[in-house]
């Protein structure tokens, strides 16, 4: 698979850009977190495309963002469970 570049992205419509980024990010995220990969990828796709391109090239950046997403999700699920328990 050839690397995704800014010019490739720029030539695509916005919705398509996110999809292209998602296709690249998903397998990387799936390797870190197989069960939450679809959700985490969706969350990360709300970030600017330029930042996502950087993450594709930097496993460290991606890893820390995935950790952040997992923490946000866990807090969210805990809150939901607490609401239901009331």
């Amino acid at each position: 698979q050839e690397p995704l570049t800014v010019s490739m992205l720029a030539s695509a419509p916005l919705q398509e850009q996110k999809h292209m980024l998602g296709e690249r990010l998903f397998p990387l995220i799936e390797a870190i977190h197989p069960t939450l990969a679809a959700k985490i990828t969706g969350m990360l796709l709300e970030i600017d495309a330029s930042e996502l391109l950087h993450m594709l090239e930097s496993p460290e950046s991606l890893g820390s963002k995935v950790d952040e997403a997992v923490a946000v999700l866990q807090a969210h699920y805990a809150e939901e469970a607490a609401q239901k328990a009331k």
Binding site: F26, P27, A38, L45
Partner: peptide, 23 residues
């Protein structure tokens, strides 16, 4: 610090064609 990530974001589903290739 507060994260800007949205836990209610829509899930991303990779293309079915990719899944087929991986089978």
């Amino acid at each position: 610090k507060k994260s800007t990530l949205n836990p209610n974001a829509k899930e991303f589903n990779p293309a079915k064609s990719l899944l087929a290739v991986n089978k």
